[in-house]
Nucleic acid binder design. Sequence first.
DNA 1: GTCCAGGAGTGAT
DNA 2: ATCACTCATGGA
Length: 283
Amino acid sequence: MPVLTLKPHQIFSLDQTLSCGQVFRWRKEDHGWWYGVVEDQIIKIRQIEDQLFFEGVPAKFIRHYFSLDLDLPGILDSVDHDPIIHAAIRRCLGLRIVRQPPWECIVSYICSTNSNIPTITRRIALISSTFGKEIEFEGKLYHAFPRPMDIDRRSEKLKECRLGYRHPYVLDTAREIARTKGWEEKICNLPYEEARKELMSLRGIGPKAADCILLFAFETYEAFPVDVWIRRIMKQHYLPALTEGTHLTGREYETIRTFARDHFGDFCGYAQEYLYAARREQV
DNA sequence: GTCCAGGAGTGAT
DNA sequence: ATCACTCATGGA
């Protein structure tokens, strides 16, 4: 069994990273083993202190996927500007933003609107088992996440995935991406605001989903996704002047993400994820 | 039954 | 440009 030993400064918590709600295709089984599907590979991994035991992919893949190359202590120091974020950092220390496959991330966050994490997880599992290539691992059957064309070719099966009103959004975006050669590189090469507009031109992707996709799949750490929880936390601790209204307006979204960018700096996306992960403490 | 969940598209101002 | 309303689904 391959082992990856973390260096002293290479702070990492596998549990925090996979439990915080950024990914939907990982499950924790017995004895601390996590099983996940990434692209068309099954990864089995567990952490014991500074050692990562894993199977399914090379160590290089593990390092890249979990962004172990990033200077996490330096990033956290750069956003640690007040007692609230300080407490969240201490609470969730070792959480790293993973590098998700972009297409799967897009579908995940189209499916996330007005939903909770268990529901999103079930939708992604259904899409995978309905359209994805079968993969066997340790005698169990898993499914790769389907390519856009896999969904388009058998689109009549999409209704079985119970996406509700998101159904046409996933289908339209799958078709758009299937016919746009090099869409991924294009977004990679655009600055944040332009990449955001580009993503928002796809059906079902608004400001919040675009920010999640940029943060979780395109290494854009200046993105600050605002959902109901983050809005709640920001009103409670940073922007008390925010209204109590039930709907988050576009203007409020801009107020919050602009404040966050100014207050937390270039890595405000990391601050967002720590605040979100620590949300249970805030209520 | 009501309310909420990692919101976005639509149509009226 | 900005706002309020509506949109399936599932769990509490």
